[in-house]
């Protein structure tokens, strides 16, 4: 028996919004430690890794490890039927071929349930090597989304250059060149507005705007985003999900042809 309950459906809606542009379907691996999802996008350029800890749920029970393959378009249809403040409960029997998603209004006067067919997905888990990153940047998630959106107008690629002074995002194309520099913030009143750079050595990497923009669909989950970079390895874009876990996107760099 698997049962997981969250106080607000809005969190699940935001999580789905953060992955459904990259993935058509995905396997949710459930165990007593929580729910994990790891999947590559269709073009095998990026990898999405979602971790939801069992202690972040209002109620969590998982008697036996369970892998639930879900069509994310179908899940999105179901979540559209929930009000943001509804409680949401996911339930499945051991070895079941369906999952039940139930919404309850705060006053318990409206209860709806949706049974969704599960899929058998060929899932390949990838081993992600430990990396000592050269640069780790923490910045407001909205600012990162804004930069990715703005620079995508000028080029398919963005160059991220990180030094101890700051981080520079550049794009160059037919229109010309765009550069956005962010300096590390001095003192800020609010932690969520800070730009913090931890640098071991400077790094310059090129990434496809299309994927960065897809990752920023996770912006509503978190006030801050963390970018971890190292020469010739995938960028890690991480959004914390408060009290519940995190979503990490890995993006392979563009390399010299």
């Amino acid at each position: 028996m698997f049962e997981a309950r969250l106080g607000q459906a809005t969190i699940l809606k935001k999580i789905l919004d953060a992955i459904k542009d990259l993935l058509n379907e995905a396997t949710f691996d459930c165990s007593d430690s929580g729910i994990q999802l790891q999947a590559m996008d269709n073009s095998h350029v990026s990898l999405v890794s979602l971790t939801l800890r069992s202690d972040g749920f209002d109620k969590f029970r998982c008697d036996r490890n369970l892998s639930m393959g879900m069509n994310l378009g179908s899940m999105a249809k179901i979540l559209k039927c929930a009000n943001n403040e509804d409680n949401v409960t996911m339930k499945a029997q051991d070895n079941a071929d369906t999952v039940t998603i139930m919404f309850e209004s705060a006053n318990q006067e409206k209860v709806s349930d949706y049974e969704m067919k599960l899929m058998n997905l060929d899932q390949e888990h990838l081993g992600i090597p430990e990396t000592d990153f050269s640069c780790v940047v923490r910045m407001p998630a909205m600012e990162f989304a804004r930069i990715c959106r703005d620079l995508a107008q000028f080029s398919e690629s963005v160059v991220i250059c990180c030094t101890k002074e700051g981080v520079k995002f550049s794009a160059s194309g037919d229109v010309g060149t765009a550069n956005i520099k962010l300096a590390q913030t001095g003192s800020v009143d609010k932690e969520e507005e800070a730009v913090i750079i931890e640098m071991q050595e400077p790094v310059t990497l090129t990434f496809a705007c299309r994927y960065l923009n897809a990752f920023t669909k996770a912006t509503p989950l978190s006030t801050q985003v963390q970018l971890s970079m190292c020469a010739d390895v995938p960028l890690v874009v991480e959004y914390a999900i408060k009290d519940l876990g995190h979503i990490r996107y890995y993006l392979a760099p563009k390399i010299e042809d």
């Binding site: 095998h44 350029v45 990898l47 390949e124 090129t206 563009k254 010299e256």
Partner: peptide
């Protein structure tokens, strides 16, 4: 010119 690398160039299948 740059070309897009694949994620499997970096991460191996378990």
């Amino acid at each position: 010119k740059t070309k897009q690398a694949g994620i499997l160039n970096f991460f191996s299948k378990k």
